[in-house]
């Protein structure tokens, strides 16, 4: 894989993870546990889809086949999607929603923090704006993990269940592959070992404060999203999200 190919691949991973998690949050419209949460969830979703658009635009320029950001978002099938499996997991209860958000936010924040210093100026620019948003996302989801973990008996049980359910999708966040290594060596992406240890430290600290137990270090991990091998959920997400573009392929404007 050349560095140019790796960069395209890497940009799609960033974009797709933002997009799919944003889509999951859109599903919660009108269903949040409080009006303040409606506002916050849509706000986070808006940030994520906005960031996805920025990454898609850059990726589309590099791919240079006449397609644009919308084509990447709305005309690729699941096996071409490169999002983390964690982001496509269903909302379930609010503990799962916030657990998924927190594991992602910790990874997202650390990744963007590193990308701000990327040797690729365009990447650094997009990351700088996104980092401000992700900093807020992480603060918010960390607070919720603590509230739910250290709230009532019921919330603690639900939050621990959520950690247990989601843990198997966290390995993918911090297990590097060729693309990650090429990006790190080129000074474009984060250094994988450092990202992994920072993520573990951050997650452990918040879970401990929240009186929650993290998964085992040697737990089996479900991976594949970064290579287009997804859980059964993604197909349904895309069927809904891409419906109009698929049903009206001749339409050139919306």
């Amino acid at each position: 894989m050349t560095q140019a190919e790796a960069l395209q691949e890497y940009l799609l991973r960033l974009a797709d993870s933002d997009m799919i998690l944003g889509q999951r949050l859109c599903e919660l419209c009108g269903k949040a546990p409080a009006l303040e949460e409606e506002l916050a969830l849509m706000n986070v979703a808006l940030d994520l889809v906005g960031q996805a658009r920025n990454w898609y635009e850059y990726a589309a320029e590099l791919i240079d086949d006449g397609g644009d950001a919308d084509k990447l978002a709305f005309r690729r099938d699941a096996h071409n999607y490169r999002n983390l499996l964690l982001t496509e997991q269903p909302n379930e209860d609010y503990a799962v929603t916030m657990g998924r958000q927190f594991f992602f936010d910790a990874w997202h924040y650390l990744t963007l923090k590193s990308l701000v210093d990327s040797s690729d100026e365009r990447v650094a620019g997009i990351a700088a704006k996104a980092l401000k948003e992700a900093t807020y996302h992480l603060r918010r989801s960390s607070e919720w993990i603590k509230r739910l973990g250290d709230g009532t008996e019921e919330s603690h049980r639900r939050m621990q269940d959520a950690v247990d359910i989601l843990w198997r999708f966290t390995g993918e966040l911090i297990t590097p592959d060729d693309t990650d290594h090429i990006m790190a060596e080129a000074g474009i992406g984060p250094e994988p070992d450092q990202l992994a240890s920072n993520w573990r430290e951050m997650v452990n600290e918040v879970l401990t404060q929240a009186t929650l137990t993290p998964g085992a270090d040697d737990a089996w991990m479900y991976m594949g999203g970064k290579h287009g091998e997804h859980t059964e959920h993604l197909g349904f997400i895309l069927a809904e999200m891409q419906f109009l573009q698929r049903a009206y392929p001749d339409a050139t404007t919306w």
Binding site: A32, P33, G151, S155
Partner: peptide, 16 residues
């Protein structure tokens, strides 16, 4: 449904 199912979340926030 949103408000009913969110009750435990709001209770947790208050307890915390």
């Amino acid at each position: 449904k949103a408000i009913d199912e969110g009750r435990w979340v709001r209770e947790a926030a208050v307890a915390y």
